[in-house]
Structure formats: C-alpha cells, structure tokens
Nucleic acid binder design. Sequence first.
RNA 1: GGGGGCGUAGCUCAAUCGGUAGAGCACCGGCCUUUUAAGCCGUUGGUUGUGGGUUCGAGUCCCCCCGCCCCUACCA
Length: 549
Amino acid sequence: MSEQPEQPSTPATPAPPPTAEEIHHLEAQRRTNRDKAAALGLDPYGGRADGLLSLRAAAERYDADADAHHQANSKAEGHVDRRPVVRTAGRVVLHRDNGKLVWMNLRDQSRDSLQVAVSKRDATESGFGLSKIADVGDILVVEGPVMKTRAGETTVWASDVRAASKCLVPPPEKHSGLSDPETRYRQRYLDMWSNPETTRALTLRSRLVSHTRRFMEGRAFLEVETPVLQPQTGGAAARPFVTHMNALDMRLYMRIATELHLKRLMVGGMGRVFEIGRIFRNEGVDKRHNPEFTSMEAYQAFGDYETMAELTETLIRELATLSAAFWQDAGTGDGSLTLPFGELAIDYAQPFERVTYNELFERALGFAPADADRAWAEAEQRGLVGKYARHLKAEGREIKASDLRGKIDDLLIVNELFEEVGEAGLDPARPTFVFDYPSALSPLTRPKKDAPEIAERWDLFIAGMEIGPAYTELNDPDIQEAKFREQLSGLDDEESTFRNLDEDFLRALKVGMPPAGGLGLGIDRLAMLMSNSLSIRDVIAFPFMRPEA
RNA sequence: GGGGGCGUAGCUCAAUCGGUAGAGCACCGGCCUUUUAAGCCGUUGGUUGUGGGUUCGAGUCCCCCCGCCCCUACCA
C-alpha cells in the first residue's frame, strides 16, 4: 500500500456534460424547466434567504380573526390585510396546476406538508411563472399571507415564489412513495424526502443522544474521546477490522470497545467519564447488527453495578419520556410511557424486572447451573456441545460431551444452555436486568466476595435484545492479569491473532484504579426501541451496504 | 456459511400452461382561479439486473454472476 499521488484539485479537462442520448427524457424535461426558470430571471439554485420560518412555524402563524376580516372585507375600499405574512421554504411533494391558480404542497423536516397557492392575480409574474414550471422535488422559497381555504386547509397564499434548488431526478410515486428497501438505504436522501418517518427516526435518535449527554453531564460525568485506531484491541471479544498505517508501516486495528482506555482515565484521576462513540466489529450484518455502531460506555469511581443499574434505568426512563412526547407531537403516540416495538408494548414507567442468571437458568431448565452433570447431558441432548466444538474449530468429527468435559470450564457449556433457553424465558415486553453472571464469562468484572464464581455483572434485555452490560469493575491488577492469561490459553490460532495481553492496561491497574461501576449501552438498539424501528438500519442514516455493481 | 424468496417503464405493481410486455401514478401537449392522491381530453415511455443455455418461440424453464429481502448460523 502506498500513498495516493497528489492530484490537482481541478482536472485539466473538465468532464463533458452528459450528451442528449445519455440523459433520461424525464431528466431532460426537468433540465428544460430549469432553463425556463433562469429565463424568468431567477437563479434555479437560489441563494441566501433571511427570515425563513419552518413550514410548521409558518402554519402556526395563522390568525383566524385576520383571515375572517380579510375574507369579509377584501373588496372594501381602504381594506387593510392583517393576515400574518410568512417566508418559508420546502421541497415540492405535490403539484396541481389549475390554470391561473397553482397549488403545491411543500415538505420540510418540521412538517410533512404545507399547502401553497400561487395565483396569477396575486403573485409576482416570475413567482407565478416559476410555480407553473416547478417540478415535484424542487425546493422553493415562498412568501405570502397565511390563510385557510374553503376546505379549511392552512395555506400560504403566495405573493412571491423563488427557486432554491432544482431537482433533476424523477420523484417517487406520489401516493405509494418509495418502498424498495435497497433504494431507501442506498439513496437515503430520496428515502428521507419520500418517507418523512425516516427523518423522524433519525431526528429522534439525535435527541436521544443529546439528552443522554446532558443526563450524564448532570451527574458530573466528563465526556472524553479515546483512540479508534489501536495497535491492539481489547475490552470485548470480537473480531476487529484491520488497517495499515503508512507512516510507521504498521498494522492497526479499529477499536471494538472503549473500556480499557476509559479505565486508564480513571486511573489518571477522572472519577466519572463517559464516551459516546463508534465501535467497529468485523462480524455478521443483520437486523440488529451493523459493522459500525454507537456505544456509550460510562465509568463511575466508587460506584458498583448497582449504581450503574440505577443510572441506566433512570436514563432509559427519561429517554422513553422524551420519546413518548416526540411521538405524541408527531401525531403517532398518546404520550404514555408504554411504547410500541413491533407487536410488543413496552412499559418503561414500571420498575425494570430483575432476575439472577441462576434463577433464569433454573426457571428454564429445572436444575441449577452448578449441576454440571445435568448441564453437560442437557447440552449434548440439545446439540450444543457440537455447536461449541465448532466454535473451537474442532469440526470434522463428532464431538461428544465426554471429549470436551474437563478440557473447558463447565460454565461455558452452562452458558451455551443459558443463551439457548434461558434468555428465551425473559418477557420481551418487560425491560429486565439479568444479574450475576458466571465469573468465567466476565474477565473484566469483579467476583463476588462471598461467591467468587459469580461476577458482579448484569445484562439489560429489552424486546429480546441485549441493550448493554454493566460491571463492578475489577481493579486488582494481579487477578486481572490472571484472568487475561486464562482467556488467552486454549484459543485457536485464528482467534489468538486478534487477542493479546494489554500490558499497558495492566501497568495502569498497578498504578491503582479506584473501585468503580462501569456500563456499556448500545445506542442504536435504544434508538430502535424508542422509534419502533425493527431494523438497526432504520436508525442509522447510512447503514452498511455491499457496494453497488 | 446454509436454506428460501425476489429483481419487469422514473415510482408502485401486473403478465394464466413457455405464445404480440401491460396498468396506475409521473412525464409531454390541450382546458381550467379554492384544488388537495385535483379533474377532463390526447400522447409518450421497456436490451424484463448481467452473461450463457434449452426451444419454432423465454419476463416465464436451466446454469453462472451481481444486488436486495426473509429464515438460520456467527457475533463468549
């Protein structure tokens, strides 16, 4: 790999404009209309416009008394029109030409539609002329009094219309819209124009992240930024993306978690830190996984996992409150804290459910995780032993419980069972903390003092999705090192390529990290829950897609 | 990775057993100053994802490839 050679910013020969044969006739027609707008003395691509109101704000300026007064007296001598005059802008979504009166509906992010009427009598000549040749998709600036039609629809009765941008692309169908998922994700701008709910979901996501920041700051957490590019990854078990740094000719990895750096900051003396940022995991893509996603990790010195449970539950309840108000405002919710997610109705007002890992296991399987004999037998019967063996790249022969038992921790098989049937025992409509995972599964977590096989860790599940874990953080460098070494032993070659011992992290722990509670939250999945989006792609503006052919 | 489905006009979708590729909307021309998925009249629009094969004849059947969706697996 070498550096890209420097290119002049402008090519010696500019790309030739498309020839007539290359332009689709629908685009050609729009280019003609653009030229006609220019002939009216208007810049088809507009310019600065001051004093613009959103469509929503413009509609809210409607004054019924002034409108009635105007309707009654418009032909009277000396009549003064007191209707509020607005200047607003939006993209044309409907266009109806009645001859000397043109009706259009504009859309912006504040309002799906606001009607505009442009009459030959009352509008400027250029404004009327422009409205005659406006195409669906064009962006227009409209000025005029706000009134209501006979049918009662709020309308800007244009005195002037100016061009702001030309749309050269034929629009989606005006009623059924754009529904092809591939086009929606690849050309998000088309999707957002055609499907306002897309913009709404992304808008809500922005508000959720913003509120989360304010919430954390309100609790005296400091927002920090840690490296995305790292010589080694850590803090989670996931395959990383690999890249290369030219200057030092070295391999670098994209981070798979922010944990180890945030803890270093605690060692340094920052008592409460959080980071909201992009995480990259080189794994499968499906409705709940995107290769890059956003997490919030937070660490609170002198807290523990109970501290983080309270923080998490309070935060999510506030986010649900914000979301309920958002959807009520958008006209699709009743404002209650019971939010829909697909077929589910999830009540965020009630205290979240709490169960322990062992309770959940026993409820689903009828015996305790400590009963290793039954766990191995049950796992074998369910075909989970072979599944785990495949995990170890030991495929090619039939693996029996007797082959594996003794070679791996019993709890790894217990956890296979738990994930298979334990999690299924959760009520998906009830946010649930699952407390106290086996220590063997939680290398960065402090074991319970009176039961070291159990780690002070919980996972939060909502709608069957793992929203995030929290720990009472392990701050004993010797135990931490032992757990790291245990994790590294028994790994096959491929996995060990990506796992390594973070010596500097251990060195930091030796300096001394205060006892702490730590938390990780999947922001995308929270956004899914709060916006009733069944696919993670609906809350990511530009989700990963295979490149077009 | 495995299984299933899909790809037709700008958009949303049809096309019977393998037998002339259609509709609505959009677009274009005409009429229309309270329409609102405006309406009325008249037009236009296609290498059926790509490449091969079978056949007198392929949107339809077979194979390769590309892309998307669903299920499943992976993601301690």
